[in-house]
């Protein structure tokens, strides 16, 4: 273990053991502050744990979670398909203004769109998928189209010199060549979608889901339950993020090679 004084100096790299020690310190400190806090707005860990049990066994949180996960999976799949297609289309000048225009729609936000989207989709599950997809895809297209536009010209020239046709160039340079970055963008996007999910589920509550459950508990001022749900949302969000990271390393082992740990 490195000298602990190292941890207080700027721009130092620490070994794993010291880093772990520091993390444990912060976790313990957080719990210490929590347990000794005078405010009554924050329930004690024990209350939250009991609320979690009640939610799981009596309120059917398991199936609700499943509903939510299905929603985000559905919306993510649609987002990926639509956004990648649109982003790759930017290599054709004719489609650039279209993609540019669609990406600008991200400034609209949900509230005003609920009504027109309800008319189009008929509400319910389809409405939620559509809203979430819209929210995620407009951001995804923005980042991804930028990445495609910024591919250095020499990469295309390099493939031309090797004698590759345009389709092969599109595949190797535009699709495969940006896959690592697409997955990075997707990772941020899934995080955004997850953050939006309670809002979207609140718009149409009939199908349930963790967001609907959260609003219910809010209405009844069940503070411990609300925190228990927030805790679950946080843990699941982190798990999704971690899974995305694993997927990136699996599909693009080259992606993390260039990154050197400080």
């Amino acid at each position: 273990m490195a000298k602990l004084s190292e941890a207080f100096l700027p721009n130092r790299t620490l070994d794993r053991k010291t880093t772990g020690f520091i993390v444990v310190f912060w976790v313990v400190a957080t719990f210490a502050v929590w347990l000794t806090m005078p405010f009554k707005t924050l329930p004690m860990p024990g209350d939250i744990w009991r609320a979690l049990g009640a939610l799981w066994w009596e309120r059917g949180m398991g199936p609700q979670l499943f509903t939510t996960l299905r929603l985000i999976a559905h919306a993510t799949a649609l987002t990926v398909a639509l956004s990648l297609l649109l982003s790759y289309l930017t290599v054709i000048p004719f489609f650039r203004p279209l993609v540019e225009g669609l990406s600008k729609l991200r400034f609209l936000g949900f509230t005003g769109l609920v009504f027109p989207f309800t008319l189009v989709t008929g509400g319910g599950y389809a409405l939620k998928v559509a809203l979430l997809t819209f929210g995620m895809a407009t951001f995804f297209v923005t980042s991804m189209a930028q990445i495609v536009v910024e591919i250095p010209r020499v990469q295309f020239d390099h493939m031309r010199v090797l004698g590759a046709g345009e389709v092969r160039i599109l595949w190797e340079v535009v699709v495969r060549g940006t896959l690592d970055r697409a997955l990075d963008v997707l990772r941020q996007n899934v995080a955004m979608g997850w953050a939006m999910i309670t809002t979207v589920e609140g718009i149409s509550r009939a199908e349930g889901g963790i967001g609907a459950l959260l609003l219910d508990e809010n209405r009844h001022f069940l503070l411990a339950e609300v925190y228990a749900i927030l805790f679950v949302i946080l843990v699941l969000g982190l798990a999704l993020d971690y899974a995305m990271g694993v997927l990136t390393n699996l599909l693009c082992p080259h992606a993390h090679l260039g990154r050197v740990t400080r």
Binding site: V154, A164, G177, D180
Partner: peptide, 17 residues
């Protein structure tokens, strides 16, 4: 035409993936 002549570019581009 492009593809018949070899060209080693200045900063040696390769397919990074």
């Amino acid at each position: 035409p492009a593809g018949t002549v070899g060209y080693v570019f200045q900063d040696y581009p390769l397919l990074h993936h």
